[in-house]
Design a protein around this nucleic acid. Structure first.
Length: 894
DNA sequence: TTAGGTTTGG
């Protein structure tokens, strides 16, 4: 028996015996051929059959059909045995009464050309010795031109690059091998290049940290020289000449599975809504929330992971491990995880999952369409086609049910006050004091405001000074505190990071000093909201994308775009800007207004005290500060305005719409009104909802139906969520009902048209409704704009407006002025803001800038406004009111 | 054992 043969055999043998009867029988000697394992389920005895018994062969009926064999084959095709030991193939499993026969083909194990071997290592002792003719050499003695056919080197895999293809299509894999310490105390590494199927197999099998032995390599000089100017050597491994031995630690592989009839245990997965307190289960889930692993106060690392599945149930899991590597490698919300042997327990009336003996996990990228490759430190794991399907199904579900908004924000998109996840490259690092570390990072985009520069002692900044200087306008300074400090200190310059729940806020003094707000970046202490840092591997798809983007950044372009006021952008990192802004610059900056007039610039500024003494109507140019504004809650400032009768009304609340639509859904659709020359109609009957009928009328264009995104639809019997879904797909949705002769608008209390995120309402008083056939006038041009549709249907559309009261103060007096604005003043459409988190954040930031909370009014920015006065008469008295016109918020504030 | 998702001091 050769060592090559026995390595594979031993693993198989142990897997079988561990599950059943450890000391019962010895494995037979193995030859390169079919190999039969017979298990008697009654006595739990496993035996090895030298050849298949003639008697058994003569009972074809008792053996699986060709189809069943294929199924068995497929089921086992990507088992752990095969993934880690590609030279095994379980061809089929036959079960008859209590006898189970497994047929395993061992061809590759004995194939002399087999380029990769797995060597099982129990408690650090390899179960199989290397061939005795092989002689170990250390890295330093390697010399060009020597024959290394019978020599080997051994080391630890410290880095594995992505598997790639060379120009001619040959697979190529590069790894860095670190020499065992026994030769030299200092770290000594060498690059190893694998080619062809050897590269492919190594990419599958090897993991960072593995001990490997390589033999039969060719030594060559690297094309580039090392950091120290010396030429370096690298090893080339080709499939026909070279062999790699990968040592697999099997100490932790203790199967706790119930006895099962095939080599690979068949795992069952419990849906998250069926978990029972006290059980130990296997589950799949999409990550809804996670805390990257951190050191607990106890002995272990901890990671909190909340997952959801198609049952819509959520399970929060407390995962502990002394070994950081065995916790799931989650990079973002939406990743898919598989947990084995998770214990379910109760805590505060809710169930939770906890790690238990033998817990293991696989993590998969959650993005649809990316390869299904498990992230795990586990050497041996099962992965079947069923698993593949489970991951793919969860990806689809998660794409529709798990929102990752807020995550993965670019620096250019950040708002004044925000928590977000940042993917970036580390370019500099400095210890600021005992409790915080400064990280200088960039993501290739320019933040809307300069980063506040953190002070640190000379000489404490780690990183390439030239590069830090070159990127100074694009890097941000992040202060990392408390429990994150240890990890931050260990980070290497040049690594790619994801920083979770990073906090930005405006530096309190920055505006006073330069009128340009500066952003502070903090990773506060604690682990709330998943706060933490994770190093992303080079082959992570987000990192690959970021690298491509960083490479494309034109640094020269950024350097020309610096603002005159932004003096501290150009000063040394080691000083605070306050020492450098001269009084003259400060004055110049403070004279700039946070708002801009779009007309009437010829007018001279009038003090508020003078305006207060005059009659209306008048027009004025003023210069004042925003002392206060109302309403403070943004959603309260958005109203619907009728341009005809000038009435103002509240935007209907979603719950009111829901009720109205539900009520309308009980009305019957008239079949006579379906399928006309204007539209084609489809009727659906819902299940479990008293068989509600939904009718959708697809409006045709030139007599034919077009793509959904170009098609207007009308809906009868739809509820809010359905209309919401349909509006994402179709050009526009009109809720309608059947009347005697034609379809008509459902009710002006609900939108007459839903287009994208905008819900269009009509004025009840001013509209004179016409029926849907009037849309015929628009069909030829397919002019499905809200204005055209409203006109055709006799509707006076309501405008979304911001209605606010500003209290302005210029030092001579205060004046309350109204702002009623669709989209000009803030440059944000009022019609879209209620459905857009981003726009709401923009608006918040603008208000924060115009009227900074916690500041003295002297520190507020100036606002140049154009206002007009007018008389308002009520029953008792006449009053002068003021409104802002022709004024917009300055672009650099948006 | 640890943590038990729910931000902000620097």
């Amino acid at each position: 028996m050769t060592s090559k043969a026995s390595s594979g055999c031993m693993i198989l043998w142990h897997k079988l015996s561990e599950k059943r009867c450890p000391q019962q029988t010895k494995p037979p000697s193995i030859a390169s051929r079919f190999y039969f394992v017979r298990t008697d389920n009654r006595s739990n005895k496993t035996s090895y059959v030298e050849d298949f018994p003639e008697s058994e062969k003569q009972e074809p009926a008792s053996y699986p059909s060709a189809q069943a064999r294929e199924a068995a084959h497929e089921q086992n095709e990507s088992t752990d045995v095969e993934q880690r030991l590609p030279h095994f193939r379980i061809l089929w499993v036959a079960a008859r009464k209590n006898i189970v026969i497994q047929v395993i083909y061992l061809e590759l194990v004995l194939n002399a050309n087999m380029p990769v071997h797995l060597v099982k290592e129990v408690n650090g002792v390899p179960e199989v010795q290397l061939p005795s003719y092989l002689e170990e050499v250390d890295f330093r003695t390697l010399q060009l031109g020597c024959d290394y056919t019978n020599k080997f080197i051994q080391g630890t895999v410290s880095l594995i690059y992505s598997l790639t293809q060379l120009g001619d299509g040959t697979a190529f894999l590069k790894i860095i091998l670190q020499e065992k310490e026994k030769f030299h105390p200092e770290i000594n590494t060498i690059n190893i290049l694998f080619f062809g199927n050897l590269a492919e197999q190594c990419a599958k099998i090897m993991h960072q940290g593995d001990t490997i032995v390589v033999t039969g390599f060719v030594l060559e000089e690297t094309s580039s020289s090392s950091k120290h100017g010396k030429n370096c050597l690298q090893l080339k491994m080709s499939p026909n000449e070279s062999t790699a031995y990968v040592y697999v630690k099997c100490d932790t592989v203790i199967s706790e599975e119930p006895i099962c009839l095939s080599v690979t245990p068949k795992y069952t997965y419990t849906p998250l809504n069926q978990l029972k307190h006290g059980s130990i289960v296997n589950v799949y889930g999409a990550v809804k929330f996670f805390k990257p692993p951190y050191r607990s106060r106890g002995t272990d690392y901890c990671s909190v992971v909340s997952i959801m599945d198609q049952s819509n149930a959520k399970l929060t899991c407390m995962l502990f491990s002394v070994n950081l590597d065995t916790l799931p490698v989650i990079y973002k919300i939406g990743d898919i995880v598989r947990f084995h042997r998770l214990k379910i327990q109760q805590y505060k009336n809710e169930i939770q999952g906890v790690t238990t003996v033998g817990f293991s996990s696989l993590t998969f990228e959650g993005t649809l369409g990316t390869p299904v490759i498990p992230r795990t430190s586990s050497k041996i794991y099962t992965f079947t086609t069923d698993d593949q399907k489970a991951v793919e199904a969860l990806r689809i579900w998660a794409a529709n049910h798990i929102s990752s908004s807020g995550a993965l924000v670019k620096l250019s998109d950040i708002k004044a006050v925000q928590y977000f996840d940042l993917t970036c490259e580390l370019v500099g690092k400095a210890e600021v004091d005992g409790s915080s570390v400064l990280l200088k990072v960039w993501d290739g985009t320019k933040p809307p405001f300069p980063s506040w520069k953190v002070l640190f002692e000379d000489g404490s900044l780690e990183g390439d000074a030239d590069r830090i200087n070159q990127l100074q306008h694009l890097t941000v300074d992040i202060l990392v505190y408390d429990n994150h400090v240890a990890l931050a200190k260990s980070l290497e310059i040049g690594t790619f990071l994801r920083i979770y729940s990073l906090h930005t806020k405006i530096h309190p003094n920055s505006k006073k000093q330069s009128n340009i707000p500066h952003l502070e970046f903090h990773l506060h202490g604690g682990t709330c909201y998943g706060r933490g840092i994770k190093v992303l591997p080079e082959n992570n798809c987000d990192v690959e994308e970021l690298k491509r983007f960083l490479d494309s950044v034109d640094l020269a372009e950024y350097q020309q775009l610096e603002n005159v006021c932004d003096l501290d952008y150009n000063i040394s990192n080691s000083y605070s800007s306050q020492d450098f802004v001269s009084p003259c610059d400060l004055e110049r900056c403070q004279q700039l207004s946070a708002t801009v007039l779009t007309d009437h610039q010829y007018l001279e500024t009038t003090p508020l005290s003078a305006i207060l003494k005059r009659d209306a109507p008048q027009q004025y140019r003023i210069r004042a500060k925003l002392r206060n504004y109302e309403p403070q809650k943004l959603y309260q400032s958005v109203k619907l305005h009728c341009p005809k009768c000038h009435s103002l009304q509240e935007v209907p609340h979603e719950s009111d719409l829901e009720l109205l639509l539900q009520e309308a859904a009980t009305e019957q659709s008239d079949p006579k009104l379906q399928n006309t020359s204007l539209y084609d109609s489809e009727v659906w009957t819902t299940q479990n909802q008293q068989e509600r009928k939904i009718v959708i009328h697809f409006v045709k264009h030139d007599g034919i139906l077009h793509a959904p995104e170009d098609t207007l639809i009308m809906i009868e019997g739809g509820i809010l969520s359905e209309i919401y879904q349909l509006s994402k797909k179709f050009k526009g949705v009109i809720p309608v009902k059947s009347s005697q002769e034609d379809l008509i608008v459902l009710d002006l209390a609900v939108p007459f048209l839903i287009q994208g995120k905008t819900w269009h309402y009509g004025c009840k008083q001013c509209s004179k409704l016409k029926t849907m056939q009037n849309l015929n006038s628009l069909v030829k041009e397919a002019s499905w704009t809200p204005v055209c549709i409203a006109q055709a249907l006799g509707i006076v559309p309501l405008q979304y407006v911001f209605v606010m009261t500003f209290t302005l103060d210029d030092g001579t007096g205060t004046l309350k002025v109204y702002l009623m604005d669709c989209e000009n003043f803030f440059q944000i459409p009022a019609s879209e803001i209620l459905n857009s988190d981003d726009l709401q954040k923009n608006m918040e930031m603008i208000m924060y800038m115009l009227c900074p909370p916690g500041k003295k009014i002297g520190e507020y920015p100036w606002l140049e406004c154009f206002i007009k006065s007018y008389n308002v008469r009520n029953e008792v008295e006449q009053e002068i009111c003021y409104r802002i016109f022709d004024t917009v918020v300055a672009e650099d504030l948006i």
